[in-house]
């Protein structure tokens, strides 16, 4: 195992409201190797976007890191000042968002915005920056970039804007690109284009990608490693193949089963009953216990840790010796011996 590029350790993030501190992320740990694509997948409210914002040091007002470490390059990002973080954001880690329109300035041409991103991070002349901007736009698949640099964001389609965002993110040659639902607002044919482009650029620049998504299909296309989150906790992490062939956490199993698929036909979709509990009234035990078909008294009273080995970790009592019946009744029929 080589040295990870980014290591998130026991991260707790929460918000202060009038009365108390509400913890949203609870004990989130994972790491990203250089050049690897890691997907965080989960439904709305699972904390996947908050995780990426915490890494970027861009927590919304009121948000605070309450514990844990984010190790990047042997340094703990949680201890960095705002200025140091802004330096890292520009030069080491970049981010793209779901809705590119909100991140692009509507009154400047895209050429100017990309060139500006280059000028901030590299000491080159304006002319050079402009040329490089055109080069970058060509690289992200914008046709005839010499002409398009003079366009304003509103003159471009959603897919093209997302490409511009990627170009800006690449301006500083980041080692890590965080992409928060980059294709959710796009049509499938455009999504296919962007995903392919990202894979190509990743190979070319050798950067790592942390992708936040709700779409298991996108995970399957992109990820080397997957982190499944539920209600602010990591419930399962493994490589992509294993996740789809042998999902272990009941939530992951439910999530995969509830997706309508092109290759299978069912009359009734299996569902996960109920809703995600609100952050203020999280169950004391396993957070999924209120919706889990296998939940026992143990699950409801005591929160499980993350069990398993490097290749496949899961946060579920079923895979421990404490589980009554040694996990026999479990759907996949196997247990991880500790």
């Amino acid at each position: 195992m080589s040295e990870p590029l980014l290591k998130v350790e026991h991260l707790d993030v929460g918000f202060k409201n009038r009365k108390s501190f509400v913890k949203i992320l609870d004990d989130v740990s994972f790491d990203i190797q250089p050049g690897e694509t890691v997907c965080i997948v989960g439904e709305s409210g699972c904390g996947k976007s908050l995780t990426s914002l915490a890494i970027m040091g861009l927590l919304p007002p009121g948000g605070r890191i309450a514990g844990g470490k984010i190790i990047y390059n042997h340094e703990d990002l949680t201890k960095k000042s705002a200025k140091e973080m802004s330096n890292i954001r520009g030069n080491e880690i970049s981010m793209i968002f779901q809705e590119p329109m909100t991140s692009l300035n509507p009154v400047h041409t895209i050429g100017k915005q990309v060139a500006e991103a280059i000028l901030i991070h590299q000491s080159v002349s304006k002319k050079e920056a402009w040329d490089r901007a055109i080069e970058l736009l060509r690289l992200v698949g914008i046709p005839s970039p010499e002409a398009r640099v003079k366009n304003y964001p509103h003159e471009m389609s959603g897919g093209m804007r997302q490409r511009v965002m990627i170009a800006m993110a690449l301006a500083c040659r980041p080692k890590l690109l965080i992409a928060d639902e980059p294709t959710t607002a796009l049509d499938v044919t455009i999504q296919a284009q962007i995903l392919e482009q990202m894979n190509e650029l990743k190979k070319r620049f050798g950067m790592a990608i942390l992708m936040i998504t709700h779409d298991l299909g996108v995970v399957s296309e992109m990820a080397d490693k997957v982190i499944v989150m539920y209600a602010g906790k990591v419930v399962e992490t493994t490589d992509t193949k294993r996740l789809f062939q042998n999902p272990r956490h009941p939530y992951t199993q439910g999530l995969i089963a509830s997706m309508p698929r092109l290759d299978k036909e069912v009359d009734e979709l299996p569902i996960i009953p109920g809703n995600v509990p609100a952050p203020e009234d999280m169950p004391t035990g396993c957070r999924f216990s209120t919706r889990c078909p296998f939940a026992t008294e143990l699950c409801r009273t005591k929160a499980p840790g993350l069990y398993g080995d490097e290749a496949h970790r899961v946060s579920c009592w079923m895979y421990t010796n404490e589980w009554a019946g040694g996990g026999q009744e479990h759907a996949t029929g196997e247990t991880i011996k500790l």
Binding site: V188, T189, Q191, A192, Q193, L195, E196, D215, L216, G217, V218, V219, S220, E221, K241, L243, F244, Q245, I256, M259, R261, L262, D263
Partner: peptide, 14 residues
């Protein structure tokens, strides 16, 4: 173009 779950990488019409 639809990303499919649990499928090996494949040739796609883009």
């Amino acid at each position: 173009a639809i990303p499919k779950m649990g499928e090996e990488k494949r040739e796609r019409i883009i």
